[in-house]
Nucleic acid binder design. Structure first.
Lengths: 224, 224
DNA sequence: CGGTGGTAACTTACCGCAGAGTCATATTGT
DNA sequence: ACAATATGACTCTGCGGTAAGTTACCACCG
């Protein structure tokens, strides 16, 4: 009745004129926010990023983020959760494959390139030095995640080193760190050369492996 | 004279009771502050660090920092300046040496380890993602510094690749990025294992080089 | 089909606090 | 006495976080 029309609140006082649902269900909105946040956290770092900035880029308001994620840390937690789902699954699939040694390394790189195409910053989340290292809260969770990576990488590296006759655990640890950093730097380099495709990156890696390691990779290793 | 005593201001209102020179000349104080700041910036990141925190750790007060460096960015600038002096000089010295290829790589690493002993965070300053990337101000200066590194590294990498028969400039560029990242990751790993010495780090690198590259390093390369 | 409440989706406006940067002032070596 | 060295106490901006209100969708009733 009149009420419907009468409810013309827009003018009432200085109320929230742009309020009201836009018909986006919570799950969709959450995913959208997490996507934006992951990019910003991953490129600028957690400490240097403000929640307001994320809200603005996502085209929504700050309180909505707090409604859904509780806190800035909660938002980061959600980003990490999504990222680990994306990455670890793929890496574990590769690890379960039958490739070993250098070929396994190359396959991992190849998978990484395909996976991180257009969203390389996901990787950076796990190595953000600005995440508060307070012994409680997010630090433990983060360690859990990175350990999942590291264990996988360390398994591969350790395997290769065993074949070569070195089993020093500290050497394995150091070489694993180097290997993960190599993958990281290649993704970063790719970011600076956007015209490269996952396939061309893989081909480049094959060339560089052959050059640096003097290795002969089996045919068919290069993506189509 | 009476005046000196009469001026007993300590009680006057709530004056600065701890003020007054402590006999430390400006240059010394500046160096001391820069040293502390470099450590904190390098480990926590620029954005996550507060000037007050630095002042407290240095045992002086915040205004003194602003007196000497003008701003937080100015302090960072001073840190970068000192760091580039320390690092670039050493790298250029190595580059001028007669080592080539893998041996030059190893000598660079060795020099880095010796140089960064007890202050590994210096290196991190140049790759801190939380430094404001505003096109003006510090970003340009930082780029200048990192370019100085990169040029040197690219020269070494390009030389090695030429010997191996690959002159693709993009391959050189990518491999240079990888190489610098390798050095970075080794320093980072060292940060997490503080009991390692420069010599033990170098020895480890020799082992890993031999293992991964199948290379035979000349004797005398290992630091005693 | 029209109305009508309940609730999920959104917002504006604000609070409190931490941190960058400043001012006026105090102390001491020379 | 004076310049250099130093600081307590302040302002102001920006950000994490919150309160309270607004709007749209939807299931249900008549």
């Amino acid at each position: 009745m009149a009420r419907t029309t009468t409810r013309r609140s827009p003018s009432a006082g200085s109320g929230r004129r742009n309020a009201g649902t836009k018909g986006v269900p919570r799950a969709d909105r959450e995913e959208q926010i997490v996507e934006v946040a992951t990019e910003v956290f991953g490129t600028q770092g957690f400490a240097a990023t403000s929640v307001g900035d994320i809200a603005e880029r996502a085209g929504i308001s700050k309180p909505l983020i707090y409604n859904y994620f509780g806190s800035k840390e909660g938002l980061l937690r959600a980003c990490l959760h999504r990222a680990i789902e994306i990455l670890a699954g793929e890496f574990e699939r590769i690890a379960r494959g039958d490739a070993v040694g250098l070929e396994r390394a190359l396959r991992t790189l190849e998978g990484t390139f395909v996976l991180l195409e257009r969203q390389p910053w996901i990787w950076r989340l796990f190595f953000d030095p600005t995440i508060p290292r307070g012994e409680q809260g997010i630090a433990a969770e983060l360690a859990l995640y990175t350990d999942r990576f590291t264990a996988l990488a360390e398994e591969g590296v350790g395997e290769m080193m065993r074949l070569a006759g070195n089993e020093d655990p500290r050497d394995v640890s150091a070489l694993t760190a180097v290997w993960m950093s190599v993958a990281d730097s290649l993704v970063t380099w790719w970011l600076d050369h956007p015209d490269e495709t996952p396939a061309s990156m893989t081909a480049r890696c094959v060339r560089l492996f052959q050059l640096v390691l003097g290795a002969t990779l089996p045919p068919g290793t290069t993506a189509d």
